[in-house]
Amino acid sequence: MDTVMINDSQRKKMHPHKFTLWVGLGSIIMMFAGLTSAYIVKRDQPSWIAVDMPLTFWYSTAVILLSSLTVHTARAAFKERNMLKYRRLISVTVFLGLLFIVLQYVGFNQLWNSGLRMNGSGGVQFLYIIFGLHGLHVLGGIIALLVMFINAYSRRSRSYNMVPVEVASTYWHFVDILWIYLFVFFLVIK
């Protein structure tokens, strides 16, 4: 929609859109910091029930780690203007992102079917909400990647503007790192 053009003297500085993204990430971090600290406070209350994560979440961890790798190489390919490779890698990343969501869903199902529902006040209720919100952020990333994917095909591809690619890939790495944090958090703090 809107684009900011910058002259030479500003090129050394970060692009405002990239900068906005970083501040936005700070905001998302605060949201999850709020939720995980609520978890820690809540842990001391009576009738707390700890939750064990099913194996599926280990698989989804592997998938999202892999997708970080593919988005990283996609960015490198774009930089080299190797558009064919870029398109392929973006498609793979989108696929891995969707796979991640599916795996999360499977993990939720396993917990749910083992009788862990929303009523109660233990770890699993937090897990549903926190992982669910994380999943929404991943979905946002998938949409961003899809937009770039479509752009990469429909444009007459004279556009070598790095900014959107970098914004999307930074965001993707972020949701990956956020997942690692949440995963380790739920592993360690019971």
Binding site: V23, G24, G26, S27, I28, M30, M31, F32, A33, G34, L35, A38, R117, M118, N119, G120, S121, Q125, I129, L133
Partner: peptide
């Protein structure tokens, strides 16, 4: 930017208490 998201977390948990049975 740093404090409103925490409020949102609080509201999300509240919504689940209202409608999710938590």
């Amino acid at each position: 930017v740093l404090s409103f998201p925490v409020l949102l977390s609080g509201f999300i948990l509240l919504l689940f208490d209202r409608h999710g049975g938590t």
